[in-house]
Design a binder for these strands. Structure first.
Lengths: 322, 322
DNA sequence: TTGAAAGCGCTACCAA
DNA sequence: TTGGTAGCGCTTTCAA
């Protein structure tokens, strides 16, 4: 492995000049540059990244913290990796499994200068703790963080949910149930608001018995459908917390011989591959756009210049379940 | 940000001693250690990883190269990240999108000492090119590489396929079709062998018209089912290249009103979440085990000691499609 | 048990 | 345009 020093010796120029060639400085004569480049090529030279990182105090790496990996998160990561890559940044994944110690490890890596910035996808640490690492570098979050120092790219799901409702209502569905996720979350609140406003707009009653809560997974979805079957006064449609839940409801409906959408219309959320596969109508979540924006939020600190955020909106993917 | 040097000055000891404390050397008096640790804590000191990496010549990072991310690859990565983490290694993902330039970038990062080793999940580069980077560090592959310097954790799919066949044959299915992937691949060859041997063992004819090739995706699966419907002499069962294909066949069968498994039994391959969701019988691929083994193959170079590979086997996940 | 000092490979400032 | 040189923050002999 040849080093910059060796290239300098072999070429007869100083390390400084070689470094200039490396960094594309204009203060090198074309002739000198050519000679040095030739020697580099001949020696199969590549600069050592650690030396660069140490010297510059930056690594060109960004850490992405997540409790686990699922399709949606993956999508987000892909978008982020892409955006970061365009600006010369690599990414490294910290999967914590919800272990706060591992999360701390990742945060410490910002301090230890292994990464120049941090993207938080999902975490268990308190916003306060996370924010205390802001002094070591920029941090951005996917979900809303409720802390002035941690910007996020979270979107108000009111719009998305309203879209889905509008779709169902204009198709004539009036008895519409909801499978919500975490009851206390802002997303659930927004969705609930959207629901109540939409129902009111159509002069339809809001029935609390059509609020399911803490529904997250396929299994949860299956359970919801079964409990729904036992109800008198069944809903004609159901809006789900995410596509997983919708998938669970769809497949359980099939097992139970309940016609979809004749007897029950189903709408998912996020528009994952699963929804596409199963032909589930769903709300398209512009995840890649959010990822791009996440990088842009880091840009001032990383690039020294701000990048304008791009406007994003939910839309509808209408398929076979409505 | 305090440095080792500052800790040394504040404590009155030398940098060497502070370094010893950091690295848990036994040649430090308990008293000294305590004092130094106290100062470190007080100063909120953490060592700079770049300095360590440069000095030691190792980064404790392993790169994972993949063209794209899907459920199976993610599974593998998760297992690998887990294994690597247990031994103090972090991982960094290179998604290349099949771009050979990006792949080269990742390989160069081994040379530039950004990573200590490389795991190749999927790639377009020639084994020869990849192998030429072996001199800069250990490289291991998921798929078979056909190069003596690049070990792989690929499994012979003969066994897995045989398992699925045995399952179908003992259930009385005799007209069994195959949806193969890449025709020239070793996996396809193994599967074909397994098929022909199993059929022979049951004295059943092998009908070439039941060989579908280059079938990879959900859409491909759907197409296969449609073409199958037009055949006279339809098969009673079909073995698929992967779960995606099986999912496509299952959902298209549903649309066409073809009873599964009464009219057509379907078996997938890999046992992904999708197969579980859709209740598809499939061959369980021990991906996490392969990932663990992948790390173990890197161990000699990374840890300086060999770790025994764990034995792995395919098994069957019997669900609703058979 | 402790310290001095020479690296690790590059950048960046100051002169020339 | 080029060179000299002092860092960047840690590890690792070699001595004491």
């Amino acid at each position: 492995m040849s080093t910059l020093d060796q290239i300098a010796k072999l070429s007869g120029f100083s390390k400084a000049t070689v470094s200039r060639v490396l960094n594309g400085s204009r203060h090198v004569s074309p002739d000198t540059r050519k000679k040095i480049l030739a020697i580099m090529k001949e020696q199969d030279y590549v600069p050592n990244r650690n030396a660069i990182s140490l010297s510059k105090g930056r690594t060109q790496q960004i850490g992405m913290i997540t409790m686990n990996l699922n399709e949606l998160i993956l999508h987000f990561m892909n978008g982020f990796v892409e955006s970061a890559g365009r600006h010369g940044f690599q990414t490294i994944i910290y999967t914590t499994g919800g272990d706060s110690q591992k999360e701390l490890q990742a945060l410490e890596d910002l301090k230890r200068k292994r990464v120049d910035g941090l993207l938080i996808l999902t975490s268990v640490s308190s916003p306060g703790l996370i924010a205390s690492y802001r002094k070591y570098g920029p941090i951005v979050s996917w979900q809303r963080m409720d802390h002035p120092d941690i910007p996020s790219v979270a979107m108000n799901q009111f719009e998305g949910y309203a879209l889905a409702l509008e779709h169902l209502l204009t198709r004539g569905y009036t008895r519409i149930a909801n499978a919500f996720g975490r009851p206390s979350s802002i997303n659930t609140q927004s969705r609930r608001e959207a629901y109540e406003q939409a129902m009111a707009a159509y002069s339809l009653p809001v029935d609390e018995q059509w609020y399911y809560s803490s529904i997250y997974s396929i299994a949860d979805g299956e359970r919801v459908l079964r409990s729904l079957m036992e109800q008198q006064n069944r809903p004609e449609a159901i809006l789900c917390a995410n596509d997983l839940v919708a998938a669970g409801i769809v497949s359980e409906a099939r097992r139970q011989g309940l016609g979809v959408p004749e007897n029950l219309a189903i709408v998912g959320f996020d528009d994952t591959e699963l929804a596409k596969t199963m032909g589930i109508t769903t709300v398209r979540n512009p995840v890649a756009g959010q990822a791009e924006n996440a990088f842009r939020l880091l840009a001032p600190a990383l690039l020294g210049k701000a990048l304008a955020l791009q406007p994003l909106a939910f839309s509808l993917a209408i398929r076979e379940t409505t």
